[in-house]
Design a binder for these strands. Structure first.
Lengths: 147, 147
DNA sequence: CCCATCAGTTTATTTTCTGGACGGACCATG
DNA sequence: CATGGTCCGTCCAGAAAATAAACTGATGGG
C-alpha cells in the first residue's frame, strides 16, 4: 500500500491520516490553533526547511483544512487560516496534547494550560458519549461494520 | 529541526507526535484498537513492507504504548497488545475517526459504527470540559504558558 | 542603490520505503 | 522422514520520497 492509497480505504482513520497523518502537518496544525498564520512564522517556529512548509500548507489548503487569505496587496501576500473543517480538528489536537501532558510532561507540569472561556477554569478534555453524556474509554466501546 | 528532536520540545503535541505522529504508526494503532495483535495480521491488513511493521512495532513497544506478550512456546511467539498508556490513545483515535466520518464518509455513512456498551447506543465522541462538563470547541479555549 | 521582508521554487543530497529473498523454529501430512 | 505450511522476523539493493540550502521575485524604506 502506498500512502496516497490511504485516502481510498473504507476507513475513516485511513482517510483522515491521508490528510493530517504526518509529523510536520500535525505540528503546523498545532501552530494554527495557537494563532500562527504566516509562512515565515511557521518556518521560524518549526525550524524546518521551507519546502516542507510550502508543501504541507498547499496540501492542507487543497483539502480545505486551511484557506489562503490575502492580507495585503503590492505584492499580494497570503496568510493561512483554519476553515470550519480545520477548526473541527480541535478535538484531535486537544486529545494529542492531553496524552502528551499525561505521559511526557516534566516535574513542573504541562507546558501549556488551556482555559475554558465559558466556565473560566483550566481544564483537560474529556471524551463523552453523544447519546448519554457519560465519559467513554477504550473498553466501553464496541465496533461493528456500519456500511 | 530533525524529527527525533521533536521529543525534546517543550510542547506536548511535539512530544506525542514524536511517538505516534507517523502515518503507519497511526494505522497500526487503529488496528490495535480493532483487536489486531499479531505481526502477520498487521502486515496483511496494511499491505506494506514487513520492515516498516517491525520498525513501528519496536518503536511503540519501546515507548510503552504496546507490550510484547508471549502467546506460545516452541518457538516462543509474541503478540502486541496495548498497554494502559496505549489505551489512553483511544480519544485520539476516536477524534480522528469522527473527523473522518464527518468529512470523508460517502453517501452510505461511516464505514464503522461505535456502540457505547454502557448505554447501548451508537455514538460519536464529544469533547467536554473536565471542570464544567460542557462541550468544548476551538473557539471556547484560551491557551497560556503553564510552565 | 542597497538592504530588508516575505513567500515561495529549484536543485542536489539524504533518508526512507519497497519488494523480495532468507532464516529459524516448529507442526501436519503423506 | 521429506515436503510444505505457519509465524516472526532480518537483510539487502534499488526506487521513491523527504529534506536542506540556496535562489527568485516583488516590493518598500533609508
Amino acid at each position: 500500500m502506498k500512502w496516497e492509497d490511504l485516502a481510498q480505504e473504507p476507513c475513516s482513520v485511513a482517510r483522515s491520516v491521508a490528510v493530517i497523518g504526518d509529523r510536520w502537518t500535525l505540528m503546523i496544525l498545532r501552530d494554527c490553533f495557537l494563532g500562527v498564520r504566516r509562512f515565515e512564522a511557521f518556518q521560524e517556529r518549526l525550524g524546518i526547511s521551507r519546502t516542507i512548509i510550502a508543501d504541507r500548507l498547499k496540501h492542507l489548503t487543497a483539502e480545505g483544512v486551511l484557506r489562503r487569505v490575502a492580507y495585503q496587496d503590492h505584492p499580494t501576500r497570503y496568510e493561512y487560516r483554519l476553515t470550519d473543517k480545520g477548526l473541527e480538528l480541535h478535538p484531535v489536537v486537544m486529545a494529542i496534547v492531553h496524552w502528551g501532558d499525561r505521559h511526557y510532561a516534566g516535574e513542573a507540569g504541562p507546558p501549556l494550560l488551556h482555559r475554558h472561556k465559558a466556565c473560566g477554569c483550566d481544564f483537560h478534555p474529556v471524551q463523552t458519549c453523544s447519546e448519554c453524556g457519560e465519559p467513554v474509554d477504550a473498553r466501553a466501546v464496541e465496533t461493528r461494520p456500519g456500511l
